[in-house]
Design a protein around this nucleic acid. Structure first.
Length: 423
DNA sequence: TCTCCGATTAGAC
DNA sequence: CTAACGGTCTAATCGGAGA
């Protein structure tokens, strides 16, 4: 039993954001489509047609304006409410196919399929069910390690012959070699731009070369992550599936502004809003934070303007998740770093030193950790009557910094008011 | 010189 | 027409301060 290879599945939604939009827009099923990042900044999801037109991942929107016009590319702002809801539907279906699921990102899930005798049929079935019940097409990659499952998924996506399912465990060693020799190292999970360059200087350009490199010397040169990657490529499962959604160790809320702002009032308004969001996330995972950082950035793409990117770290003597307390400290921090005469493009807050709210013993003389009753009521009201029903006075009341989102589709699945059809 | 810790980097999506 | 290059998260590594 122990000698049987693990069968780890990696299910990845195809062009996820584009696919979500297409579910409600059958008219764009065969058209080039792209989805822009926050602030309508960069292309972060592309349909195959858009990829074929040469639209690169992450390209700034203004740089492809001409192609958008010439080819009639359909452009959408990010609609995270919709994507999150579609993701939940997909993940929920997938969860029925294994008791061990790790939801790795909004559009990817690992499943442990080890021990199932009918892996090929299961993979096929989950793929068909997801597309039938949600409209989202997915590919399934299977391998003895997470890294090889990811690589299998890449093969499934690239080779139409696989029909969206590929299991590297079914290949002979010879076949594996011929497959891996045709894939460049940068397709490997954990190998990014820098490593690709360094590896190439070492004469390593294909996945096969990387797999067969000497572990000891590679570790010495590139570190422990590289060693794990190589072992995983050899079929040794070094990275376990992480069943439980683990509590975040750091919570960031930051945003680029729709246009740069120069007054402290505008930055205060944005910052209090970011703190509200971050504190809500903190409470949702039942945590409190012991450290807060506040930062400001001017527009780094405007080299001719004076640049100033300050930040301040604020230790919280009494860890808390109370929005009002956190906002008070954030505004004090802002006062200490804000300088007029600059145009700020982005601001944000980082909560860290996060621990469990219930485990915190508190200061003997300070009494119990800050009474969180008021925040509980606050959260309950917003949950019941809708986000933003109650908020603190300063939170996001100005519009000056709001991000651009000019092409957002309706929240089809979660908001009656946005449905395009009148009943 | 060693250790600790915050800051930076690299990677993922 | 404006003006126009994202947001979170983790882990490893770097490098300075203090012991």
């Amino acid at each position: 039993m122990k000698n049987q290879p693990r069968s780890i599945g990696l299910i990845d939604c195809n062009n996820f954001y584009v696919s979500c939009e297409r579910v409600f827009r059958p008219d764009i099923l065969t058209r080039p489509v792209i989805i822009l990042s926050n602030n309508d900044g960069c292309a972060v999801s592309r349909s195959n047609e858009a990829k074929a037109l040469g639209i690169k991942m992450g390209v700034p929107a203004f740089k492809i304006r001409d192609q958008v016009k010439e080819y009639g590319i359909e452009v959408f702002s990010s609609n995270y409410v919709l994507y999150a809801d579609m993701s939940n539907r997909v993940m929920s279906i997938l969860s029925e196919y294994s008791p061990i699921q790790e939801i790795y990102s909004i559009d990817e899930s690992f499943l442990d399929l080890t021990g199932f005798s009918d892996i090929a049929e299961r993979a096929k079935e989950m793929q068909e069910r997801v597309v039938r019940e949600t409209g989202i097409p997915v590919c399934v990659g299977i391998g003895p390690s997470k890294t090889l499952a990811k690589l299998s998924n890449f093969i499934a996506k690239r080779h139409p012959k696989s029909r969206g399912v590929f299991n590297i465990n079914r290949l002979s060693p010879k076949q594996v070699e011929s497959v891996l020799t045709n894939i460049p190292t940068d397709e490997v999970w954990g190998v990014g731009r820098k490593l690709t360059t360094s590896l190439s200087e070492f004469g390593i350009d294909t996945v096969l070369q990387l797999r067969d490199a000497d572990v000891a010397s590679m570790r010495k040169r590139f570190g422990v992550v590289m060693e794990k990657t190589i072992r995983e490529l050899r079929g040794e499962a070094c990275i376990e599936l992480d069943d439980m959604a683990s509590a975040k160790k750091q919570i960031i809320n930051s945003r680029s502004f729709g246009k740069s702002v120069g007054t402290i009032e505008d930055v205060q308004d944005a910052l209090t809003h970011f703190v509200s969001n971050a504190a809500k996330k903190l409470r949702d995972q039942g945590s409190i934070a012991g450290m807060m950082q506040v930062f400001l950035l001017t527009d780094r793409f405007r080299a001719e303007q004076p640049q100033y990117c300050p930040g301040v770290t604020i230790p919280l003597v009494m860890p808390t998740s109370n929005t009002m307390t956190l906002q008070k400290w954030a505004l004090a921090g802002l006062d200490s770093i804000f300088r007029s005469g600059y145009l700020y493009k982005k601001a944000g807050v980082i909560l860290s030193e996060i621990c469990d709210a219930s485990s915190y013993q508190g200061d003997l003389f300070a009494g119990a950790p800050e009474n969180s009753k008021i925040m509980q009521v606050f959260d309950q009201m917003n949950a019941r009557y809708g986000k933003g029903t109650i908020k603190l006075s300063q939170d996001g009341s100005r519009q000056s910094w709001q991000m651009r989102q000019e092409k957002k589709s309706p929240e089809y699945t979660t908001n009656w008011d946005e449905l395009p059809i009148c009943f």
